[in-house]
Design a protein around this nucleic acid. Structure first.
Lengths: 332, 332
DNA sequence: ATGAAAGCGCTAACAA
DNA sequence: TTGTTAGCGCTTTCAT
C-alpha cells in the first residue's frame, strides 16, 4: 500500500540516496556493479520514482492542460489528439478540461492551471479574452491559444481565418449562379459565428450582389440546429438554391430536411458546410465543405507550446493563421 | 516568474506559515482580522497554493488517469466525458491517454500512473489483461476497467455484454427471414470482435440456422473497413441479404458500397451496426444499430471510481454489465 | 489563537 | 565514484 521510496532502495542496497537517484536519472556516472545492484533491488522492491516529489523539486510537472469547450463536439477530439501527439513525444501528459464554453469554467481552469503548476496550457476559450491568459505567462507558464491575438502578449496564438474561408466558400456558391444563397449560422453570440457571417457578406459584396437578409438564420451548432434552420428557410418567402452552413452538423441536418421535402441535392439545392468532420465524407450525398485541418491545428499548437517549453522561443506571442481548403464533394 | 509561496505570504503578513495554511484550508480557526489580512495580502501578492507540494504532503494528487485507445474514435469522447463529468464534481482532474491499442503503450501508461501517483485509473485496454492492473490496486490506486472481470481482483469492471447484444441484433435480422446474413467483424485479435462474432453464431444456433462461413469477413473498425468488407462480400459467391456489422463506422462504409452497387437499403439489403454514434441517426438511410450508451458507461465508471476514492467501497472488484438496446431505424 | 519544526520523496551543490 | 545535506512548498503534530 505504501509506495517504496528512494530511501528504502538506498537502505536495501547500502548506497546513498544520491547514488540511487543518479542511477535512475543518469545525471552522473555510477559504477557498473552499483548500478546493476540498485536496478535489480529497485525492481524487486517495486520502486517507482515519485513524479510528484520530482515535480516539487524540479519545479516542473511535465504536464500540460488542454482547455476546450467539449470533447464530445466532433471538432475537438482531433484537436486534442493533435496537441497530445506532439507533446507526449517529449514526455508531457495532458490534463483535458471541458468548459462547455461557460465563462466561470474557463476562468476556473486558468486558476487550476496555476495551482497545479502545469508547464503549459493550450486554451480554446469562448468567453474569456486571450489577454486574461497573461496571468499564466507571468509565472512562466507556456500558453498557446486558439483565436485572434491581442496587441501585446506572451501568448502564442493560432487561428483559423473564419472570414477568409467563409468568403471563399460563399463565393464558390455564388459563382455557380444558382440563385439566392442562404446562410445558417451558429448562435450570434459566438465570435466564430460573427466572422463566418462577415465572410458570407463579403463574398456577396465582392460579386456585387445583395445579401438576402431573410435567408440568414441563426441556430445551434448542431444537427438539430440544421434541421430547424432549414425548416424555417423552406417556410419563408424566398426559396434558396444553395446554403452555406456554419458547420457540417448544421449542413447535414439541413440537407436531411431538404431531402425530406423531396428536393434533390445538389440539383435543386446545394449545401456547403464547415469542418470536414468524418461524417461529411460519409454522408449521402457527401458534403462539400471547408476542411479545417483540426488535427494539424492541434499539432501546431503543440509545437508552439514545445518551443516555449524548451526555451526555443522566449519572445512575444507569435500569431499564425492556418488556412482552410474547400473540399468539393457531391452536395455542391 | 517565481511563484509566491506560503512563506512569502507569512513574511509579508507577519504571521507564521502555519496560520496562512490554516486560513486556506480552514482546518482550524483563525482570528477574523488575521484571516482577512492574510487573504488580502495573499490576493495582492498573487499567491496560489501549490497543488504539487500539497500532493507530496497529502499523498494524493486529485488526479485520475483515463486510458483509452484513441480519442478520435467516435466511441471515446462520450466515454471520457462521462467519466470526467462525474469525477470533476469532486475536484479531480483527468489525464487523458491514448494508447492506439498498442500493448507497449498500454503498459507504459500503467507505469506512468504509478509514477505520477494518480489517485485513480479508468482503463480501456485491448492488449493488456485486466489482471495486469493489480499492480495499481496493490499500491492503493483505485481502478475501474472496461471489460470482463477476472476471477480475483480489486479492479472494478464495467462491461457491455457484446455476446448478448450481437446475438440479439443478429436474431432481429434472422427473424426478418430475408435470407443469408453476413457479418463484417473487426480485427480478429480483439476481444470485442471475438465476442460479437460469438453472438452472431449463437443467434444462428438459436434459430437452428447454419452460419454462412463465407459471409464472415474481418476488417478494421473504420469506415474504410466497411467499404472493403462489403466490396469483398459482393464479389463473393453468396449474396447476403443483410449484414450485421461490428460497429457503425463499418456499417456506414458497407452501406455506401451497397448504394454504389445500386442496391436499395433496406429492400435489397439491410444493415445493422453497433455503437449508435451520431452519424447513425444522421445517415441516409438512417442506421439501425445497437445503442451502447457510452456516456453512461463513462459515468458508471466514474462513480465506481469515486466510491473507491472516497473509501465507500474497499472490498473486492465488482463487476457490472450494462445492457444495450437495439435502435430500429431505416436500414433494417 | 498561534508557532516551531519535522517531514512528504526527490535532486543537486558541495565535499571527499 | 560516492556521500552529506539543504531545500522544493506544504501540512500537521506538539507546544505555547
Amino acid at each position: 500500500m505504501q509506495p517504496i521510496t528512494i530511501a528504502d532502495v538506498a537502505a536495501a542496497t547500502g548506497v546513498s540516496r544520491t547514488t540511487v537517484s543518479h542511477v535512475f536519472s543518469g545525471h552522473r556516472p555510477v559504477r557498473q556493479e552499483t548500478r546493476e545492484l540498485v536496478l535489480r533491488v529497485a525492481r524487486e522492491m517495486g520502486y517507482r520514482p515519485s513524479a510528484v516529489a520530482k515535480s516539487l523539486r524540479a519545479r516542473r510537472t511535465n504536464t500540460v492542460m488542454i482547455v476546450i469547450p467539449d470533447i464530445m463536439n466532433p471538432f475537438y477530439p482531433g484537436f486534442a489528439r493533435g496537441v497530445q501527439d506532439v507533446v507526449s513525444q517529449q514526455g508531457y501528459h495532458a490534463l483535458l478540461c471541458n468548459t462547455d464554453a461557460v465563462e466561470a469554467s474557463e476562468r476556473g481552469y486558468i486558476e487550476d492551471a496555476l495551482a497545479r503548476r502545469v508547464d503549459g496550457v493550450v486554451f480554446v476559450g469562448f468567453r474569456v479574452p486571450i489577454s486574461d491568459l497573461d496571468i499564466l505567462t507571468e509565472v512562466g507558464t507556456a500558453v498557446v491559444a486558439v483565436g485572434p491575438a491581442p496587441e501585446e502578449t506572451m501568448v502564442d496564438t493560432v487561428w483559423l481565418d473564419d472570414v477568409a474561408f467563409s468568403r471563399e466558400a460563399t463565393a464558390y456558391l455564388l459563382r455557380k449562379g444558382l440563385g439566392p444563397v442562404a446562410h445558417i449560422t451558429g448562435p450570434t453570440d459566438t465570435a466564430v459565428e460573427v466572422k463566418r457571417e462577415i465572410g458570407f457578406r463579403q463574398a456577396h459584396a465582392d460579386a456585387g450582389l445583395e445579401v438576402h437578409e431573410d435567408l440568414i438564420v441563426s441556430e445551434e451548432f448542431t444537427h438539430q440546429g440544421g434541421i430547424e434552420g432549414m425548416t424555417a428557410l423552406l417556410a419563408g418567402p424566398t426559396r434558396p438554391r444553395s446554403v452555406f452552413c456554419a458547420n457540417d452538423l448544421i449542413a447535414l441536418g439541413a440537407m436531411r430536411v431538404a431531402h425530406e421535402h423531396g428536393l434533390r441535392v445538389p440539383e435543386d439545392i446545394a449545401f456547403v458546410g464547415v469542418d470536414d468532420i468524418d461524417m461529411a465524407a460519409i454522408a449521402n450525398p457527401s458534403l462539400t465543405t471547408v476542411r479545417l485541418r483540426i488535427h494539424e491545428l492541434g499539432t501546431i499548437c503543440g509545437r508552439r507550446l514545445l518551443e516555449r517549453l524548451n526555451g526555443d522561443w522566449t519572445g512575444n506571442g507569435r500569431s499564425m493563421a492556418l488556412d482552410a481548403e474547400l473540399v468539393v464533394r457531391e452536395s455542391a
